[in-house]
């Protein structure tokens, strides 16, 4: 078929570029690692509490960040999607703006705020609430704050997209049938916005799982997540085998989450009309 040939030709350069510079290297190194070291590094990862603890920290921070992003992001997104005030455009800019600012810069801002001599401590001590500075920077809490700051725009943007596509008339229909605002929300709006919730959560969770800058800058030298550990194994410990194992385990975890979400929601998405918002 003529059309098939044209589609093929158009796609060819990109297919080849990704094949040569992405797919083949990824697979080649995986096979090479397994051939040279076998599963030793993988076994070590899953038997050493040190590594398991890093995996657990990563998952924990990601889950907490995702949950708080959703809880804060949902009402904010709802407001942005439904408001008719001029505030809407301003808010969209406020959300997109940090989104376009480097993670290094944003983490730096939190370092200035949360540090031992930081603005927050200066303020709390200034009003006499604290006598000793509070240690927030270089703790897990700082990482979670930085992570939410980094990722909540993604959550809000995917929620706004879905909420905007819900016809406000379905809410009025629910009211007219006697549903209270709370019932309308739980029975109509919330289920309809499920595709956005799922895609937002998956996005925030995976980005948090793989994030490097935020844990490195806000967590301090003793706080480790998967991505920072890979770099540390390479640059500090010179243990490439361990680095390989950690990076492939991270990759598999993320893929597993994605696949699980797709499988468990595909039926739901189909019934919702092809999952066009997914």
């Amino acid at each position: 078929m003529e059309r098939k040939r044209r589609a093929f030709l158009l796609a060819l350069p990109t297919v080849l570029a990704l094949l040569v510079f992405f797919l083949i290297p990824m697979v080649y190194i995986l096979i090479k690692t397994l051939l040279v070291n076998g599963f030793a590094d993988f076994t070590k990862f899953f038997t050493d509490p040190f590594y398991l603890n890093i995996l657990w920290t990563t998952v924990r921070v990601s889950l907490i960040s995702t949950l708080i992003s959703l809880l804060l992001g949902y009402p904010a997104a709802y407001f942005i999607a439904r408001t008719r005030s001029k505030l809407k455009n301003v808010m969209m800019i406020v959300i997109l703006f940090p989104f376009l600012v480097s993670a290094v810069v944003r983490s730096y801002g939190w370092m200035v705020i949360l540090g031992t001599n930081g603005i927050l401590n200066q303020f709390l001590q200034g009003i006499g609430l604290l006598s000793q500075p509070l240690k927030i920077l270089n703790t897990e809490a700082a990482v979670v704050i930085g992570m939410i700051h980094l990722l909540i725009p993604y959550m809000i943007l995917s929620l706004v997209g879905v909420l905007q596509s819900i016809d406000p008339n379905v809410e009025y229909a629910a009211y007219s049938l006697g549903a209270s605002p709370a019932k309308t929300f739980t029975k109509v709006v919330f289920p309809l916005s499920m595709p956005g919730i799922i895609s937002g959560c998956v996005l925030v969770f995976t980005m948090s799982m793989t994030s490097y800058v935020t844990p490195k800058l806000l967590g301090g030298s003793k706080f480790r997540m998967m991505a920072t550990m890979v770099v540390q194994e390479i640059n500090v410990n010179f243990n490439w085998g361990a680095a390989s194992a950690i990076s492939y385990i991270l990759l598999l975890t993320i893929l597993a989450v994605q696949v699980a979400v797709v499988l468990s929601t595909s039926g739901y998405m189909k019934r919702m009309g092809g999952g066009k918002n997914a």
Binding site: L72, A76, F97, Y108, V112
Partner: peptide, 23 residues
């Protein structure tokens, strides 16, 4: 079409997002 609660949270999120940049 929107309640005070969602408005409040939206404003707080905006402040949270802008704070480090302003600092």
């Amino acid at each position: 079409r929107t309640g005070w609660f969602s408005c409040l949270i939206a404003v707080l999120v905006m402040i949270f997002l802008l704070a480090p940049l302003v600092v």
